[in-house]
Amino acid sequence: MEFQLDSKKKIIAVLITVIIAAMVVLYLRESVFTFKASDYEDLSRGMSQEEVSRVLGKRSKLLYEKTQDDGVVVTSYMWTNPDGSLVEARFENNKLKFKTERGLVNKK
């Protein structure tokens, strides 16, 4: 009986360790994810904000959001790399209309 209890505790401990390790990997992947000039070039007019986030990473900052008199929703987001390079994107009704970058270099 004691052997079975110790075995179950070990299995639970291993499972908890694996879950924690997976969470740390996911967190670190997102927190150190950087985008390059080639990623910026992959962005095209008409992409949604979600599609752009898949290319540049989920850590974006909403800079501006306004509904115009004609009903068009205009939003502007910024993605920043740890080195300070950045991409700004303007969306109209969740469709990319304009993009700009500063400081991006192509890193292999």
Results as ranks from 00 to 15, higher is better:
Met1Lys: 07
Glu2Ser: 13
Phe3Gln: 15
Gln4Cys: 09
Leu5Arg: 09
Leu5Glu: 14
Asp6Gly: 09
Ser7Asp: 11
Ser7Val: 00
Lys10Glu: 13
Ile12Thr: 11
Ala13Asp: 05
Leu15Asn: 14
Ile19Gln: 10
Ala22Asp: 09
Ala22Lys: 05
Met23Ile: 14
Tyr27Trp: 12
Tyr27Asp: 04
Tyr27Gln: 05
Val32Cys: 04
Val32His: 07
Val32Thr: 12
Val32Leu: 09
Phe35Ser: 07
Lys36Phe: 02
Lys36Ile: 03
Ala37Phe: 08
Ser38Cys: 10
Tyr40Gly: 06
Tyr40Asn: 05
Glu41Met: 11
Gly46Trp: 03
Ser48Lys: 09
Ser48Ile: 06
Ser48Ala: 06
Glu50Phe: 01
Glu51Thr: 10
Glu51Phe: 01
Arg54Pro: 00
Leu56Met: 08
Leu56Cys: 05
Ser60Thr: 01
Leu63Asn: 01
Leu63Val: 05
Tyr64Met: 12
Thr67Phe: 04
Thr67Ile: 15
Gln68Ala: 12
Asp70Trp: 09
Val72Lys: 07
Val72Gly: 02
Val74Ala: 03
Ser76Gln: 14
Ser76Arg: 13
Ser76Ile: 07
Tyr77Val: 01
Tyr77Met: 03
Met78Glu: 11
Asp83Lys: 05
Asp83Glu: 10
Gly84Thr: 03
Ser85Cys: 07
Val87Asn: 00
Glu92Asp: 05
Lys95Trp: 07
Lys95Val: 12
Phe98Glu: 14
Lys99Asn: 03
Lys99Arg: 14
Lys99Trp: 06
Thr100Pro: 00
Thr100Phe: 01
Thr100Ala: 09
Thr100Tyr: 07
Leu104Ala: 04
Val105Tyr: 14
Lys108Ala: 11
